[in-house]
Nucleic acid binder design. Structure first.
Lengths: 196, 196
DNA sequence: TCGTTCTTGAAACAGTCGTACCATATACTG
DNA sequence: CAGTATATGGTACGACTGTTTCAAGAACGA
């Protein structure tokens, strides 16, 4: 008996809160402005999520979930060469539509450096890529469980994203990825050059 | 006439404030705890620096100045091969003693993504490296003003620093830099391989 | 309608924030 | 000594923070 719960409300609030955080960033997040933008009240945010920290955790999980969903729409793995796949990943991650996600990504990382206790799953956000990239770049890896090449590939992408978001110089960062592809391709196409 | 100004006090405060920020981070910085840790008062911090924002700017400038000074102590440029120089840069920047600087670096970048107006010199922090690295890696650059290779090199270092600070996996990140050196060396040692 | 449960508003609490104001202490010149 | 400049302590202001408390509204079953 009694009034039935309404879980849809919490979900809708979470979705719109995630939009808000992606648009405004995590750092200055405050319950009252957030509630005002969502046409609700701080009271309800606490009612639904318990505390601000839990709200933030839910928002980050939702943002991660969205990113993973979007990622599933990438060009299929085996269809393209590793080099083309790398270019695809770069152009996808560096696209302006992904900028809010990238920004939030860097923001979480920075906050995690100061408060590691709040982000227990942060290392997974790095190592999660290994399964995906390890399959794509298996040509150059030492073995199926080698994580070195995926580590380097993701480092290049993150480092170039860092540069791009700071300087806005798309031409230079695009060409730097081209250069990396050049360095990578002799290791990919022939069995192995004699130099090594 | 009147009591003579004491600029040394401001400098000493700045130095200790920089220590504090390097130790505690920029995000949660607050005048009262800072003043308490520095055996002074918020009143004096405002008196010396005008506002919190100006204090932060001064601290960041001081941190940058320290980093540049430390950097001057690196192994001399021409003495080593570019590959050895790259390893030197990586082992220097990834050393635990540099962790506070790296943390502050990432923190400033993240805050700059949300409030670009506060960091007018951020792009320079990227492009400043070009003169230094362009000279070291001139072998593989298209010309003296080519910035692509330095961009890639710094992206690898920043991306690996990102990984290292998040996962703490020094072995894997070290090996990823080794892998990058492998990819780079055939482009360095012979005049040019026939593949390109 | 009553009881029960979920939902929601308004207000207040205890704190922190950057900063401004006012008085006083300190150190110097004449 | 007076005069004058810098240096400093204390305090309070107004705005903001996450959270709590109290009460009322809203939707259901009996």
């Amino acid at each position: 008996m009694g009034r039935p719960p309404d879980p849809a409300r919490r979900e809708a609030t979470l979705a719109r809160a995630t939009d808000y955080v992606l648009a405004h960033g995590l750092a200055g997040l405050s319950l009252r402005p957030l509630a005002a933008a969502l046409d609700t009240s701080p009271r309800m945010l606490l009612y639904d999520f318990g505390s601000k920290q839990e709200l933030v955790s839910a928002v980050l999980a939702e943002a991660r979930r969205r990113g993973a969903m979007r990622l599933a729409g990438l060009p299929p793995a085996q269809a393209a060469s590793p080099e083309e796949h790398l270019r695809g990943i770069w152009s996808w991650m560096s696209a302006p539509e992904r900028a809010p996600f990238v920004r939030l990504f860097f923001e979480v990382h920075a906050d995690g450096l100061v408060h590691p206790e709040n982000y227990p799953h942060q290392a997974e956000a790095i190592t999660d890529w290994f399964d995906t990239l390890g399959a794509v770049f298996h040509d150059v890896t030492a073995g199926p469980n080698d994580t070195v090449t995926p580590t380097l590939v993701m480092a290049v992408i993150r480092g170039l994203l860092f540069d791009l978001t700071t300087t806005g110089d798309r031409h230079r960062t695009d060409r730097a990825l081209d250069r990396f592809c050049e360095l990578l391709s002799p290791a990919l196409r022939p069995p192995r050059p004699a130099g090594t």
